[in-house]
Amino acid sequence: MTNTNNLISAEFELYDERMDHLLAGTPYYVYPADSGRGGVMWSYEENSTCYAVRQAIDDLPPNKALIFNHAEPQERDWLVASKDLNIKYEDNLFCDSSSTVLQVNNVDEATGKHFITTGGVEGNPGCGTVNSWFQIEKVIGLYTYKFVYCPSAVCDLVDTCKDVGLFRGAGGFQHLVLSDDNYPMLMRFVKANPCPSNVETSSRVTRYL
């Protein structure tokens, strides 16, 4: 694992693995930066009204694409690092919650973790929607990124700033959570067309990891 103390973050343009600008409103599959691990996917949690967000096992592709939208209107659709975004699944998940927007859930008493789930609020940035805003930051490696929860720009009453990492839960599944140990999930983005099952890992990405 790579400690975030050694990672680079800055406000600059973001790119997918084909070296195209990452665009707001466009669906992307989220893959881990290192090979041998699966992409970001959803799964239903028993006795839950929302879907948990997990990492797929082994090299399985993601089962839904994600869409990123700016907190505030922008002059262009390009995404840049360290700006607040809504992240949502492109399709309905047939969840009891009608929202496919990702959010930081309340702390889980059994694990002490804040899990990332669906059920967030789209748009309307402010303290009332503070759990629904994330950022993308650049890290070491070509087109390698991490999700960050750092919503002080949308609500100055909140000073939390944490990476989104992984927590191994029941059944060995890796859940996306707020990280307490500075070890984020490192990721890359693949535009949702072609189908993820046909997407080959780019040598441009893996060569620099």
Rank of each mutant, 00 (worst) to 15 (best):
F94I: 04
R37T: 13
R204M: 14
Y89M: 11
Y208P: 00
V30K: 03
I136V: 09
C155P: 13
T26A: 09
D91Q: 15
Y31G: 05
G126V: 03
F68E: 03
L22E: 05
D180Y: 11
L186H: 04
G123H: 13
Y44Q: 10
S132R: 06
G169A: 10
T160C: 02
N63T: 14
G36P: 02
C95V: 00
V148N: 09
G112W: 10
P73A: 06
E46S: 13
N69M: 07
K83L: 11
S43N: 14
V205L: 14
P151H: 08
A52C: 11
N193H: 15
C161T: 09
F173E: 13
T100S: 15
H114K: 06
P196C: 09
I140Y: 03
P194F: 11
M19D: 09
C50G: 00
E90L: 11
M185T: 00
D16N: 15
D77H: 09
T2K: 13
Y15S: 13
M19K: 14
W78R: 15
V104D: 01
L157W: 14
E45R: 14
D16I: 09
M41E: 10
R76N: 05
A10P: 00
C195V: 14
D91G: 00
D159W: 05
S98D: 13
T100Y: 07
P32K: 12
R54P: 01
G38V: 03
G141P: 02
D180M: 01
V199L: 03
M41W: 03
P62Q: 15
D156L: 06
R168S: 06
S98G: 02
I8C: 07
D59M: 08
A56E: 04
P184N: 02
E72W: 15
G126D: 00
Y183F: 02
K138G: 02
T160K: 08
L209T: 10
F167T: 01
F167V: 04
